[in-house]
Design a binder for these strands. Sequence first.
RNA 1: GGGGCGGUAACUCAAUGGUAGAGUCCUGGCCUUUUAAGCCAGUUGUUGAGGGUUCGAGCCCCUCCCGCCUCACCA
Length: 522
Amino acid sequence: MTENNPEVIEKSDKIEIRRGKRDKFREIGIDPYPPRFEKTFSCSKARESVSETEPHEHVAVAGRIRSIREHGKSTFATIEDESGKVQIYFRKNDLTEKYDYIKFLDIGDFIGVKGYTFRTRMGEPTVHAEDFEILSKSLQPLPSEWYGLENKEIRYRKRYLDLISNPEVREVFKKRAVIVSSIRQFLIERGFMEVETPMMQALAGGAAAKPFMTHHNALDIDLYLRIAPELYLKRLIVGGFEKVFELNRNFRNEGMDRNHNPEFTMLEIYQAYADYNSMMDLTEELVRYAAEKANAYRVPLEARASAPVPLSKNDNELPLEARAPSHMLDKHFMEVISDDKSSSLKLDGPWQRIPFFEAIRLGGGPDLKPGDAAKAEAAVKECGIETESREYADHLDSLFERFAEPHLAGPVFITDYPTALSPLAKRKPGEPELVERFEAYVRGMEIANAFSELNDPDDQEARFRAQSDRIDEDYVSALRAGMPPAGGLGIGIDRLVMILTGAHSIRDVILFPTMRPDSKSD
RNA sequence: GGGGCGGUAACUCAAUGGUAGAGUCCUGGCCUUUUAAGCCAGUUGUUGAGGGUUCGAGCCCCUCCCGCCUCACCA
């Protein structure tokens, strides 16, 4: 990309012009990068302090210049800090010779302003400058304030420019921070303890994804970045902790698309003496709590290629049509959340619960009996689903994807998964082909996965062996020490944030999504 | 990895195979309550990279790079 090439940017005349202005400051003895400025008011507080009745408030504000409007022997500028924007009014009469320095300022510079607040004829709250100083000279011109920055590649690669230009992006990440901290608060209030388990593991277990590999020089061993913390967290349940959680990064060396980033944030929760039913209640409560805190109690449903259809006739809970914006950058996004409740997604109230095989059947798929591998394979062929796999688990997976997933606008719990798909979950009493497990779906996207944890060490070992040669012997050994019955729950935090912010792509809720390095800037 | 679409000025975008443009930005001038301020004048390019066809390529062909969408893969 030409515009990404530092060589080209360095040669830009616009940058040289700004360097010239910076040098002007130095020539008159002003440091264009001074060490500090004492600000007494945020921009929004300064705006609020304008009063029709009280005397003028004296303020010291600071921020980035977003626009400058010269007006003869006076100048208006708008500066912005994290709290918002405020207008500054400079008058030659008040600033005398210092007024001339204004011509060395550019959009993007940080300035500090001391003055008093008033309201202009047009009613704009404004700081009348009595003194000002440059706080940081900006050399690189910012993207146009009017058109903004729309080039997605630059937005992801240079997120700082995206954050400067697109206020709605700042809101998404503020909301993400609220969601994450509210989840911690929710769990800690309920007696859960936050723990940290290894990110670098000799054996990447707890899920079936391909791991990233790295090498430890001193030990001369290969290590894997974890694909899940699951097996370590359950070791802690063995160790006697009864309510633990970990909210941190996982790494999976697989394809990337709008729902997958190689590193992503996962919440895993384990509770002794609980089961998957209690985890369902916990999921509902936790998501409801986070949505409330993030002011996203009702959120827009993404427009889908085919409108979701109800899974049962008496289901009046699910919105059948999707009218909401399909992209987080839709200018009316905020209004849609607050004003147009009819097209929103209900996260409150009990979520629908549908057993796995029932969901396939209700979606127009075959009526399968758990464990009937032959019938599942026949159904896959009959439906023309292309798959190279001969595995029962894969067949069930594709049937579910084909018939059930498209209808899961949600929120909905799919329960009672086939044992073949769930090597770490406890079997249902009396139904060995099913396990006590659920996944939560919203917008056709899996956001949670939970089960009654398998704590029978011999059954666990057998199910590991059926799947792979390299198994986590130490984990099985931990189970032999005895693990109380426990419920476990995993929630994909990025996906939850997508749902609560209406984001279309996981890259829109990750500050610095994984990108191929820009070859031109090497 | 397959398929589709795209990459042109700092930003947002135009341009039948025939002199690379507009608006914003930027530079200079006027204007002491403007706010997408206004008025006047002016500057801005390795058209993602490389090769080919052609008298002539932003446009057609080939290779490559990057992004987006989609399919495949993915407990």
